[in-house]
């Protein structure tokens, strides 16, 4: 397992295509495949199985960037929130830090907020280290 002190936290970020992707393109965040920023058509499609598969593939933390509540055309971000809240409870019961999953609300064009969200999550996960 990687040494958590080597500044190499592995995070996977799922971004909504409609609210987050425009900001992502304007940001200085890398969308290279190895940087694991994945754009989905709607965060409603980011089910708990997908989140856990990211952990299975070695992620230390998973960030979901969704439309602000009330702004998703499908109201799916409420579903995502409920699923994330339940997943965090299940993770706690299984002795995995629930902080390893985070949901952030990002509006179109909120470039700085997106960058801060990704960087802030990276820092938080780096402190936690990998799942042993």
């Amino acid at each position: 397992m990687d040494n958590p002190t080597t500044n190499s936290a592995k995070i996977t970020t799922f971004c909504c295509n409609w609210s987050v992707k425009p900001g992502l393109r304007l940001s200085n965040l890398s969308t290279d495949e190895e940087d694991k920023i994945i754009v989905t058509m709607c965060t409603g499609r980011v089910g708990p199985e997908l989140v856990m598969q990211a952990f299975e593939y070695g992620a230390w933390g998973v960030l979901i960037c969704a439309c602000p509540l009330g702004e998703c055309k499908h109201d799916a971000n409420y579903k995502t929130l409920r699923r994330v809240l339940l997943l965090k409870r299940m993770l706690s019961q299984l002795n995995i830090e629930p902080e390893r999953v985070r949901i952030e609300w990002i509006d179109t064009g909120e470039v700085a907020k997106l960058q801060n969200a990704v960087n802030g999550f990276y820092d938080a996960i780096e402190k936690l280290g990998p799942i042993k």
């Binding site: 708990p48 598969q53 409420y78 929130l81 339940l86 997943l87 299940m90």
Partner: peptide
């Protein structure tokens, strides 16, 4: 791949609250 998580996702999606838009993340 994961029966428990798939079921949880389905149950969470039909857990609909009145005035959910007025609830904070903490309330939820």
């Amino acid at each position: 791949k994961d029966f428990g998580l798939r079921t949880m996702a389905g149950i969470a999606s039909i857990f609909a609250l009145e005035n959910e838009e007025n609830l904070s993340e903490e309330d939820l």
